[in-house]
Design a binder for these strands. Sequence first.
DNA 1: CGGTACGTTGATAGG
DNA 2: TCCTATCAACGTACC
Length: 650
Amino acid sequence: MAKPRVIYWFRTDLRLHDSPALKAALDLHPEAFWPIWTWDPHYVYRARVGPNRWQFLLDSQRDLSESLTKLNQKSKLFLIRESPQTLLPKLFKAWKVTHLVFEKDTDAYARDRDAEIMRAAKAAGVEVVIRSGRTLWDSDLLVEQHHGKATMSISQVQAAGPKVGAIPRPLAAPTKIPDPGEMPLEFEQDVPEQAPDLNAQAREHGDRSYAQLAGPHGDFAVPSMEELGFTATSLHRGGETIARKLLDDVIANEEYTALFEKPKTAPTDFEPQATTLLSPHLHFGTLSVREFYWRVQDVVDNYRGKGKASQPPVSLTGQLLFRDMYFGAQAALGHAFGQTMYNSHCRFIPWHLPSKVDHERKQVTGEYHIDSDEAHVWFQRWKWGRTGFPWIDALMRQLRQEGWIHHLGRHAVACFLTRGGCYVSWERGAEVFEEWLIDHETACNAGNWQWLSCTAFFAQFYRCYSPVAFPQKWDKDGVFVRRYVPELAALDSKYIYEPWKAPIQDQRKAGVRISGAGEKEEEGVYPKPMFDFAERRAICLDGMKKAYHVGLYGDDPKVVDGSWRQLFDDAAEGPTEGKTFEDAMGEGGAMTVKKGPAGRDSNGDAVEETAGRTKGKGGETKTSDRRTTAVTKRKAAQGTLDGHVKKMKK
DNA sequence: CGGTACGTTGATAGG
DNA sequence: TCCTATCAACGTACC
């Protein structure tokens, strides 16, 4: 029998410590061992990845590569620039590979990709070895122990997890690795199609990373930011070395580790932030989640200090349980988990700016309908931190610059965009997070957006975050706002969260004018709030109540074919303008993407929104005209309704 | 079936 | 500063 010639395919596990898959690969005692990374065009062009996450990835790859070289001078992370689906079959042959080893990835795209790779490996006579290592428990086994259903609450995870088994103690890092074999690349490179490149807007020039299979110097090196055309702004850097140092620092502080309660940490803290900043390392696998778990758990078990150690779900280990919960939901629901349409667990709410859907594939296309110009403006102002609400704007600017905001900050901006302000689809917000977060994790992002928008996991929509009151719990003087919205740095504390209330003299004294709608950045000017929050909150609350009463889910035939509109017609209250959109879903067709450009968003190239460039559709229906009028009237009535109701009750 | 307790992180008024 | 009840009210688990 031939001696094992093993490709170890790094993907979600850029580390040497505690990697079950890496251990399995080395336990084969390979004659040749190639640690590789395939530069996947799906990630480069079709996923939304902003400059700061690119920087974090390249950091992580370089650090791993150096660590591999320390174990064997001849080895490194060999980065090959081609789609794995086309590349790996060629490598199997050219390098006489006997085994392919990788860590299990339950993301919807990854499952499709890996199934294809496994078919190719079978055809080539290559044995595939897969190990779970990304979560506390194998997500598929977790689902199995939860009776084959999506894990939708933390108690379900706490019940099903132990049935899968005890969380394994971390494995040691390898102390040596075998030599790589010869690496002939005597085959054609399949150069990927760039378009559509969802990251084109953020690049300074076109992507150049596919110039050669082994990179511009033929040395299998990690691409540079320059090749990709990005400039990062974040100081949060990647790599296993940094991850382990961060973890050591957390663990060294026994009190912090043992007493940690997430809801009590301050979203307004910066330098240092109130939470661990380890999430991006979990995402790239530069830190093992099980190692994190046990290092924390050992501190908790031995804690004899003041107070009682905190417990899940608020404790540090509780945070990891949530991560496994979202992974379990995604493992059970697949592609549908990342969208409303066809998602059996996601409530249908007639949000503005709904996703366009390819009904053949039952997947969203990445584009969206502009059903309301007003909502679209609100969305853009939210994204770019110009809503006129300093708390929201500070968070969104911190997110763009640093790629990270505190969990409760994410709650604040997510609630504001969806059920507590703009009534815009959670999918729009999730896309912005996907692009800008350095710790973006598909499962957690989709899950958390569903949670905050009260479409799944959480239903108490009447608990609404105020952009004025909420941050004052931690930061009365608005130090956080002054840091990220420097226009307001000198404003008196009593106006810091509501600058529109500052008298002209106070504005002048602070060197800022509260004026305009934030169309463009102007020295010394901060926009007026884009709406009356109390009024919007009431309208949204009413819309949520109505939508909950109707009780549709994303996989309901009425949602899919557009006939849901009839259910909202008569008693429609609040923001059901969603139904004015000239969406072809109403005809039940899969033609949502096909209709020609026209309509009101044809001039809307303000949609710098990645796949945006939403081509609208012409042709308002009679119904929608009627609807628009009705809604306008209703809006006016409701603005005052909230106040009246309250006063009457008192 | 009915009632009740609970659910990681709301806002507000009042003690 | 910290605690409580109220606001108007969600779904789920469990007795």
